[in-house]
Simulated scan of single mutants.
Amino acid sequence: MSASVYIRPLSLSHSPQSDPGEAVRIAGGLACASRFALLVREGGRITSQRVLSAQALPEAIAMLPDALALEAGAQWAALRKVHAPIGCGERLLRMDQPGVMGILNVTPDSFSDGGRFLDKPDAAIDHAAAMIAAGVGVIDVGGESTRPGAAAVWEGDEIKRVVPVIERLSAMGAAISIDSRRSSVIAAALAAGAHIVNDVSALRHDPRSMEIVAASGAPVVLMHAPGGADNLHADGHYTDVVLDVFDDLRARRDACLAAGIAREKIMIDPGIGFGKSLADNLALVNALPLLHALGQPVLFAASRKRMIGALSSEAPAHQRLGGSLLLAIRAFEAGCQMVRVHDVAETVQAMRVWRGLRDAALTDFSLVGED
C-alpha cells in the first residue's frame, strides 16, 4: 500500500518576530507557525513523525523517497502560498485576511433559523441589508436544509426559494454564494446573479454540477461530507479523521482540476458536523492549519452547530453565540480565509478586534531580544 505524507503547522504565533528567524506566514495571511510536523502514513497508520523548524523542514523533505518528497515539497510551497483575491462581480474578496460569510436560509426546516425567511422576501432582504451594514463579505443563500434527518427538497421548490432573493441581492451589489448541491439550482442561481457555488457535497451529488461550475468560471467551495446522495451524514468512519478529511478534500480538488475548474477558483471546507462525532470535530478544529497544505483558501463553518451544544449543557441553537465566536476566532488564528456564520455583527466585531491585535503584534518589537 502506498504511503502518504502531510505537513501540519504547529506552534502558531502572533507574528514572525514572536519567534525570530523561525516563524513563517501561513497562506500569505495573518497566521504564523514556527514548527511543523512532518508525518508519513501507510496503511492508515502513521509510520513516521518528526517535528521540525521551518529552516530544517526542506532538508527533511529532500530525504524522503522521491514520490513523498515531491508531494511534501508541493505542500510546503502551498503552506506559504499567497492567494489572490477572489472576484465576485465588481467586488473582490481578499484572501490575505479573514472575511465573514453571512447565512441567509430561505427554508422551513434549517436547524437554527428555519422558516424565518421562507416566503418572506422583504424580511430576507432586510436581514441581508443588516448583514451588509455590519461588514459581511459574502451572503450565502440556501434553499435546502442539510441538517441530519432533513427531508430532500424538489429542485423546483429550491429554485423558487432562492432565485428571487438572489436577484434582489444582486441589485443591491452584494457578493452572493449559492448553497446548493443540485445543478439546476446552481445554474439558476448563477444566472440570477450569484457569484460563488457552495456545495456541501463537493460537487459529488449531481454529475452536471461540475460541468456547470467549470463552464461558468465561478469560484466553488468544496465541503467534506462522508455520505452519499441520500444522507451526507452517513458513513462517518475514519482511521484518522484529520488525515482522512485532508485526503478526501485533495481528491475532490484534483477531480475539479481535471474537470477544468481553475485552481484559483477552489476553496475547501472541512465540513464540521457532517458525519463527524464531537471528538472528530474537535480534532479537525485543532488541526485546521494543516488544510492550508492543500494550497486552497479555507472556509470554516461551525456557527451554532451541535458540537457547541454538546459542550455547553445542551444549549439550543439560538443560545450558542459564545461558542460560535470562540470557534470563529480559532479559525482566524488558524489562517482560515472565511468563516460562515449566523451572527454577522458579533463575528465581524470579534474579527476586527482580533485583527487589531494581530496588526499591533506585527509592529511590536518589544519581545525581540538584542543580539
Rank of each mutant, 00 (worst) to 15 (best):
E155P: 00
G156V: 10
G156S: 12
D157G: 10
D157T: 14
E158G: 10
E158L: 09
I159H: 01
I159L: 02
R161L: 11
R161M: 08
V162G: 00
V162K: 03
V165G: 06
V165I: 15
I166M: 05
E167N: 02
E167W: 00
S170V: 05
A171Q: 15
A171N: 12
A171F: 01
A175T: 07
A175N: 05
A175I: 09
A175F: 04
I176N: 01
S177P: 04
S177A: 08
D179T: 07
D179F: 07
S180H: 06
R181S: 12
R182A: 12
S183F: 09
A187W: 06
A187F: 00
A188Y: 00
A188R: 03
A189T: 11
A191R: 15
A192H: 02
G193K: 06
G193Y: 01
A194V: 11
I196M: 11
N198Q: 09
D199N: 09
D199F: 02
D199Y: 05
S201Y: 04
S201M: 02
L203S: 10
L203H: 09
H205I: 07
H205S: 14
D206P: 09
D206M: 09
P207T: 04
R208Y: 08
S209G: 15
M210F: 11
A215I: 02
A215V: 04
S216D: 02
S216G: 01
S216Y: 06
G217S: 12
G217D: 13
G217A: 13
G217Q: 11
A218C: 00
A218R: 05
V220K: 04
V220I: 12
V221H: 03
V221N: 00
V221A: 03
L222S: 08
M223Y: 11
H224L: 04
H224E: 01
P226C: 13
P226K: 13
G227N: 06
G227V: 05
G227T: 06
G227Q: 05
G228T: 02
G228Y: 03
A229Y: 03
A229E: 13
A229K: 11
D230H: 06
N231V: 10
N231K: 12
H233C: 04
H233G: 01
A234P: 06
A234L: 06
G236R: 07
H237T: 14
Y238V: 08
Y238S: 05
T239S: 13
V241W: 10
V242K: 06
L243V: 11
L243P: 03
D244R: 07
D244Y: 11
V245F: 03
D247N: 13
D247G: 07
D247T: 14
L249A: 06
L249H: 08
R252V: 07
R252I: 12
R252P: 02
R253W: 00
R253F: 07
R253V: 15
R253K: 14
D254W: 05
A255R: 14
A255S: 14
A255F: 09
C256M: 09
